[in-house]
Amino acid sequence: MTSADRSQTRPRRPSALLIGAALLLVLLVLAGCGSRQPSSYVYNWSIFWDSLLRPSPRIINGLMLTVTIAVISQIIGVILGIIGALGRLAKFRPARYLANVYVWIFRGTPLLVQIMFLYYGLLVTRIYGWPDFTVMGITLGSAIQAGIFALGVNEGAYMTEIVRAGILSVDPGQLEAARSLGMTYPLAMRRIVLPQAARVIVPPLGNEFNNMLKTTSLLFIVAVPELFVTFTQLNGSGSASFHPFELFLACACWFLLLTTIWSIIQAFIERRVGRGFGGERPPGIFDRLFGVRMGRLFNPVPRVSGGR
């Protein structure tokens, strides 16, 4: 066996070592923080552990609100993205212009400004006052509504580009085949083109939602009590007040948990939409988190498709 062969069949396993080393480094830094510089700060680690393991109803509420806002906003974003993409690809000129202007404005201005404008701007001028809105027994306050709207519309502009790229990635022969079978354009889009575009759309869509989970914290500007605002408030008053180190570390852990769970769901979805396309399987959850191809460790020689 040559050395080239060996390097192929016996991949290095940096995973466990590297991760362990990284964790150790973080712990050392944490431990060293207090001792280096004399500081009057007194660590209260029970605040950290309590907010993680025995979260108060406020934290749970904030968590639920973050997830709810992110999910609804992302759904709005995807719907607007599909409409926007179809608009940008339409033969009808006004539809193209409208879609282009939409993307231009919402990608070209800061989200924070959009949130402020859509909430306070519309509220104060009485253009739209965001009256309370009740669905299934849950009442959504005006700030939450405006926040969801702003996040969704902003997301829609980015999704427009993603969906458009996805549609353009599908072989034009597919639309021709569908139409030659008597399908109308909307039917062909829904049944033939979009399901194939999904394969290209889903990975960036997953990243968008990962971002969305974190971006909800921008709604602090209109005082929506989501996860970040909840921790800010805990830091501001009450028994845990002025423990920003423990509190925001816990807050970060909560966000990390959310995005991690999402990564798992995303890996599952990507495998599903990839059906029928062969080629390399999308990376699994372990690969995603740590950038190591678990599959390679056990099955180092890439499978050749079409072999006998």
């Binding site: 022969g173 597919q174 021709e176 085949a177 569908a178 033939i192 399901p195 194939q196 394969r199 396309f277």
Partner: peptide, 13 residues
């Protein structure tokens, strides 16, 4: 009108 294409154009999904 049925049509058969040079590049098949089957729906891959």
């Amino acid at each position: 009108i049925g049509m058969v294409f040079q590049r098949f154009n089957l729906f891959p999904h």
